[in-house]
Amino acid sequence: MSEKTIIPGTERGKPTIVAPPEGHTGSGFFATTVEQAIGLARKNSLWPLPFATSCCGIEFMSTMSAHYDLSRFGMERLSFSPRQSDLLMVMGTIAKKMAPVLREVYTQMAEPKWVLSMGACASSGGIFDSYSVLQGIDRVIPVDVYIPGCPPRPEQVIDGILKIQELAANESLRRRYSKEYEDLLTKYKID
């Protein structure tokens, strides 16, 4: 990444300082809504579960490693246990043999959870329009953000993660109890 395109708040050598949410400031107090405070916390401490299957996984390793350094976004800690993670990152081809496993992992995750589909294969089957490949993971689980590319560049992955952070910051606390959400899960036959 050239020096001019550094993402705001992530300058090298400086700690990331997150802008406070909207609220009322006075002497000695700051008032905001619970929703925004929780959104702020969720946004900056996402624990991703890397579900890396193929080529995109290698590109994710690049994103994680020193050069692109994903830990700038509060994502230092990869959680390999679905029960402790907030963000399912599906990277790479999901074959039909793998689909039930992916679904199982998704159902094991606790709410709130987000899903990031990285790469053409996970999003749509990509170039593998064949009998053995699932044509997009949105056939088995709901997806929040799709990253195109085969494989996407690390910058694109970072962009996708920023999009997820935006979703996490602005999500209503009631969303997961709403009828729309329930309907969505019913559509995917997930209880």
């Binding site: 043999k97 089957g125 329009d129 064949s130 009998y131 053995s132 490949v133």
Partner: peptide, 19 residues
Amino acid sequence: LNMEDFPAFPMRKDYPLED
């Protein structure tokens, strides 16, 4: 490579490629 209950032999020429 395929699932245990896969119904066909996919590399035979008469089996369609596309999903």
